[in-house]
Simulated scan of single mutants.
Amino acid sequence: MSEVPPVKSRFPIGLTIAVAIAFGILCFLGAWQIKRMAWKEDLLGRIETLKTAPAAPIGPVLAAAAQGRNVAWTRVSVACRPASLPPLSLAYGIRDGDVVWRAQALCGVQGGPYDLILVDRGVVPELTGQVEAPARAFAEPGQVTGILIPLEQLGGHRADAVTGLAGRKPAPLALMAERETPAPAGIVPAPLPAEISNRHLEYALTWFGLAVTLLFIYAAMLWRRLRP
C-alpha cells in the first residue's frame, strides 16, 4: 500500500512570527516617541519659565543636584574663581545650520559639593563656517549668569573636559552663559537653540500607523492564503 504524503500546513508560521516581531518594533517606536513628547513638553515648559525666572546662586542649586534633584534648565549666577587648569580649546558645533566654534572654560566654584563647572561661553562669530578653528585665547570668566544643562546634552566629547581631573570635583552639569561681567570680547552668548521643535506626536502616529498598516496587509495575505 502506498503512503499518503503528509499535507503541509497552509498557515504561514514563519511569516507570522516575522510580522509579530515587526509589529512589536513599530509599537515600541511609537510608544518611545510618546515618552519623548512628554519629555519635550516638560523641556519647553522649563524654557518658557526661564524667560522670567531670576538667577539663583549656583551653590544651593548644585547642592540640590548632588542630592539627586533635577536642576536642569535652572538659571543661576556664579562668581568664577580661577580653575588653575590649562585653558580649553574651542568646541565644534552646529547652530542654525552653520558650523560654529564655541568658547568654553572651566569655572572654579567655592563651597558646596562641587568645585568646578564647565562653562559654554557662546560662539566666536568670526569663525562661523570654518572647518578648522585656530587656537584662540580669551580672558577667564568672571561673573557668569546662565542656564544649567546636563553635560551629556553638549554632544560629542565635550564632557571629557571635566573627566579625569585628579583632586577635583566637577559638577555633572554645564553652564550655558547668557551674560558675563566683564563681557569677553569676540564671544556672543548662545545658550539655547533659536527654535526647539516638538514633532514627536507626529512621529508616534507615523509608527503606529505603520503598525496598523502592517496588520491589514498581513490579514489580507492570510485571508487569500487560507480561503477555500
Results as ranks from 00 to 15, higher is better:
G14P: 09
G146T: 06
G122L: 03
E132W: 08
T163R: 15
L43Y: 05
T49I: 07
L90W: 08
V109A: 02
A185Y: 03
P150Y: 00
V109F: 04
P12F: 03
L43G: 04
P113S: 13
R179H: 15
E202G: 08
A185Q: 10
R224W: 10
L165A: 14
F28A: 09
L88R: 10
P125G: 03
Q130K: 03
Q130W: 00
P193E: 00
R168K: 11
A65F: 07
Y114F: 14
S77Q: 09
E195A: 00
S77L: 03
P172K: 15
A64R: 15
L148M: 01
A105N: 09
G167C: 05
L214W: 08
R95H: 14
E180T: 11
R179Q: 08
Q130I: 00
M176W: 10
V119E: 13
A105S: 08
G59N: 10
V76D: 07
L43F: 05
M37N: 14
G186C: 00
F208P: 13
S197N: 01
E152S: 01
S77T: 12
R121H: 05
D115V: 02
P54G: 15
W73G: 01
L151Q: 07
V4C: 11
Y203P: 13
L26W: 05
A161K: 11
A161L: 14
G24I: 10
P191R: 02
Q67I: 03
A105D: 07
G164A: 12
A204N: 09
W73F: 09
V7M: 12
I217N: 04
I217F: 11
P228T: 08
G108H: 04
P134G: 05
K169Q: 12
Q33G: 08
A190E: 04
P184D: 01
T74E: 01
V119A: 07
I147G: 03
I13C: 08
A133R: 02
I47L: 14
